[in-house]
Design a protein around this nucleic acid. Structure first.
Length: 401
RNA sequence: GUAGGUGUAGCUCAGUUGGUUAGAGCAUCAGGUUGUGGUUCUGAGGGCCGUGGGUUCGAUUCCCAUCACUUACCCCA
């Protein structure tokens, strides 16, 4: 027997029902907010992710499905969605055209990691990206849209926000932080490594000892420039005016190199260790890094497998028809009626003749609302009965060839 | 890579202090005297007890290895 690869799952059964429901409704809400659908290739040049996500991140460093294709190109399967969308934005020359573009996307992403709860090697993200809006009002609007989505799906969350600063204030802060880190002893192994590769992430360490050592570390938020500060204050005041609760987490860091200014995470405490169900923020320099004309950007990505268990589906109502045959002669007649009704209804049927009782049981199983059964007497009288399985009402209908 | 947990029917799990024919619930299928359902009753099918080796007269059970799944660390959505 051939099994699926480690960390790969089939989308079937209850998961597929929920998946479709999620995608349809998240898409609908995104459209209400002015986003339009974009789909980019799963396979991209490896350089795209090295330059955008950043070589210091584990994603690029050791988790990419990377290989050389038959044309000798260094390619990899996308580990995240933003890089591809930004690449497409530039490829379409939207950066030259100017103006505002809003996109939403969804689909599989690939990271070669050890699978655990809420983490697969092939997983699915839903995300949005806005290009060409410098105002932090867009950041706020995107966060408000997420609130709409989570409310629609009845998902409980908490929101954390932070500002990562900009190219004017971040480098200075980073230097100060490294100086501070050099001055202390006893950091864990991971932090010593992070000090070199991506010092900001030391702040995020879960090791208790490191936590203590970092209590007197310089904080990002108290070192950002006046522009960043003003934007962050405006973001907070907008969220407040919409009654959206948030927590400022000065240690919140995005794992991807391209983020600046606004960073946020939606967190659930009901799903295990991988509690971040959505992460996002601003990336004003990314278009430029990827050789486009400088264009600000902001967006988020949600991990669908992480939040799908929290999605509450509406109760399924009885819908459509069940049509059964009670004699072999009636099967053909049933098939004709089934095909006719399927032009505008969900219709279930079976190709074998069964007792009326057996058919009714089958109709209940598929949750049909209307029930039709055709046997010898129906063929003889040229009429059949449509029974409503909710109201138990029956109406007689003429059987035509 | 590291650490813990789990592998028995399609699914969820019992069980065997080592012994002939391995159980339950759910699901599936067929019936409950000629054609009115959702709860019920009866019956049937379905298992290399994860794989390989060891101990033993005998292993699904004990020992070793291995693989798979799972949770957690790292990282991230």
């Amino acid at each position: 027997m051939i099994n699926p690869l480690r960390g790969m799952k089939d989308t079937v059964g209850e998961f597929s029902e929920k998946y479709i429901y999620f995608i349809e409704n998240a898409s609908r809400i995104a459209k209400n907010y002015g986003f339009s659908y974009i789909e980019t290739p799963i396979l991209e040049e490896t350089a795209l992710f090295k330059r955008s996500v950043g070589e210091s991140s584990d994603i690029v460093g050791k988790e990419m499905y990377q290989f050389t294709d038959k044309g000798n190109n260094d390619v990899c399967m996308r580990p995240e969605g933003t890089a591809g969308v930004v690449r497409a934005f530039i490829s379409q020359k939207y950066d030259r055209a100017g103006g505002v573009k809003r996109f939403f996307y969804h689909g599989p992403m690939f990271r070669y990691e050890r699978p655990q709860k809420g983490r697969l090697r092939q997983f699915h993200q839903f995300g949005v990206e806005t290009f060409g809006v410098q105002s932090v009002k867009e950041d706020a609007m995107i966060i408000l849209m997420l609130r709409d989505m989570f409310e629609f799906f009845s998902i409980k969350y908490s929101l954390q926000i932070n500002s990562l600063g900009c190219p004017d204030c971040m480098p200075t802060y980073r230097e100060n932080l490294v100086k501070f880190l050099d001055s202390i002893d006893g950091l864990c192994e991971d932090c010593l490594r992070r000090k070199i590769t991506n010092p900001i992430r030391v702040l995020d360490c879960k090791n208790e000892n490191c936590h203590k050592l970092l209590e007197s570390a310089p904080m990002l938020l108290s070192n950002i420039c006046s522009t960043c500060r003003a934007d962050f204050d405006e973001l907070k005041s907008i969220l407040k005016s919409f009654g959206l609760e948030y927590e400022v987490n000065t240690k919140l860091v995005r794992g991807l190199d391209y983020y600046n200014k606004t960073a946020f995470e939606f967190i659930s405490n009901e799903i295990g260790a991988q509690s971040a169900i959505t992460g996002g923020g601003r990336y004003d320099k990314l278009v430029e890094y990827l050789d486009g004309r400088s264009t600000p950007g902001v967006g988020f990505a949600m991990g669908i497998e992480r939040l799908i268990d929290l999605v509450k589906m509406p109760e399924n109502k009885k819908i459509g028809y069940y049509i059964g045959a009670m004699s072999d002669e009636a099967i053909k007649q049933v098939m004709h009626l089934v095909v006719k009704l399927r032009k505008s209804n969900v219709v279930h049927t079976q190709y074998s003749s069964k007792s009326l009782k057996a058919h009714m049981k089958a109709a209940d199983k598929v949750n049909a609302k209307k029930f039709i059964c055709i046997g010898d007497s129906e063929l003889e009288t040229k009429t059949y009965v449509v029974k409503d399985l909710d109201t138990k009402e029956e109406i007689s209908v003429e059987l035509r060839d």
